[in-house]
Design a binder for these strands. Structure first.
Lengths: 213, 213
DNA sequence: TAGATTGTTAATCGATTAACAATC
DNA sequence: TAGATTGTTAATCGATTAACAATC
């Protein structure tokens, strides 16, 4: 384990792919997998996979490959998925609703423990078994339940304010879906998903194809 | 315009951010913006922005900055957003529902023209004013309406089959949300969104923070 | 042992940052 | 003109690819 060497962001972003693909292989009954085969399934070179994994330890067996079960456990621990994070969704519109019902999160070890909104029709209801609280109770509930990660699915105009309140209430990470830059203190991690980026880049490449003809 | 120079993927992925931020600035009444100010709003260095933009042409005025209106038009054309792409969503579960109701897409020039599902309770209904067709009519409808981009929001097991059918029906791009690798012929562009990556990487960094203390 | 596959070092490639001349 | 800011070239940094020794 090379503790204080900085791992590249690109490597970290590939780990969840390894994790997911290994679990799919495991379900198929695969017990040992080579970097070659794993790479084929993901669309990444075997060298890349070996290099990524080697920066955390020696998980494979030379001449054999990787034991799927073991590797899943290792990657899970590297990603901290064994910690069972408590997450809360702020803003239960269409996207918040979709995320609240997304089964994959639970299987990754994330517990949805609270939902917040301002709509009186939604407050007091349950979504996927989880209580919807009024936004004004955010600080209280976050502290009481011990929410570590806040998910922002409110409109862009309210995103910064919600982030400020989440941070003040003590969350340590924010997963932002609002299409705007959200600033947080350096002690808080923020990851933003921007759905328009993927679609726009698709548009870019399709336009080029047309021109090239 | 440097037509045949290959632009880095990183640059393409930043253009939508520039586009969005410029439109926000425009709404605030900003008419001229410097790379310094634009960079501050996005969280990117001014040099980066100038370099990205310069690979497509000379859009700025030395000593002055960029005319917001003009730059928006230029970036929009580079990204092909002026083409008004027809998109179709396959699988109207929670996520498909959220995407079908996402207003930002329309504002980027994407027209949702069809939705597909297998659930008899949904087929025949309208979502956000758009007809839900049965999956078995996919080929017919895609050809008839002229869908260029297919959005896959079905479970992982069905994703590859849906992709095959979309490709056979003539779509030129696929935006995939199923958590699995989907293979398409090289003539078709595919962009995959993997929501578990962002959340898992957040988990990684939060775990590290704990250890570092 | 021979064949296979890892882990690691070196070489290459690509992207970002820094510096500055051009010019509005 | 002087100040400001772009566009571009050169330098640095980081990530990927290639090659191969180690070893199961």
């Amino acid at each position: 384990m090379k503790g204080h060497i900085v791992i590249s962001k690109a490597t970290i972003d590939r780990l969840p792919l390894y994790f997911r693909t290994l679990r799919q292989a495991q379900e198929e009954g695969v017990e040992i997998i080579s970097s070659e085969e794993l790479g084929r399934r993901i669309g990444v070179t075997p060298e890349q996979i070996r290099k990524d994994l080697a920066s955390f330890g020696e998980f494979g067996k030379k001449g054999v490959g990787y034991y799927v079960r073991e590797l899943i456990r290792h990657i899970g621990e590297i990603l901290g998925l064994h910690r069972n994070w408590n997450i809360a969704i702020v803003g239960i519109g269409h996207l918040g609703w979709a995320l609240a019902n997304y089964r994959n999160f639970a299987s990754l070890g994330f517990n949805l423990v609270a939902i917040f909104d301002v709509d009186p029709a939604k407050v007091g209801q349950k979504v996927n078994g989880v209580q919807v609280h009024h936004l004004q109770d955010l600080e209280m509930v976050v502290k009481e339940i011990g929410v570590q990660i806040g998910v922002i699915t409110v409109p862009a105009e309210q995103a910064q304010d919600v982030a400020n309140r989440l941070v003040a209430a003590g969350v340590r990470g924010i997963w932002n879906f609002a299409p705007i830059k959200v600033n947080v203190p350096p002690s808080v991690r923020i990851v933003s998903e921007d759905l328009s980026v993927g679609l726009s880049s698709l548009s870019y490449y399709l336009s080029r194809q047309l021109c090239d003809k």
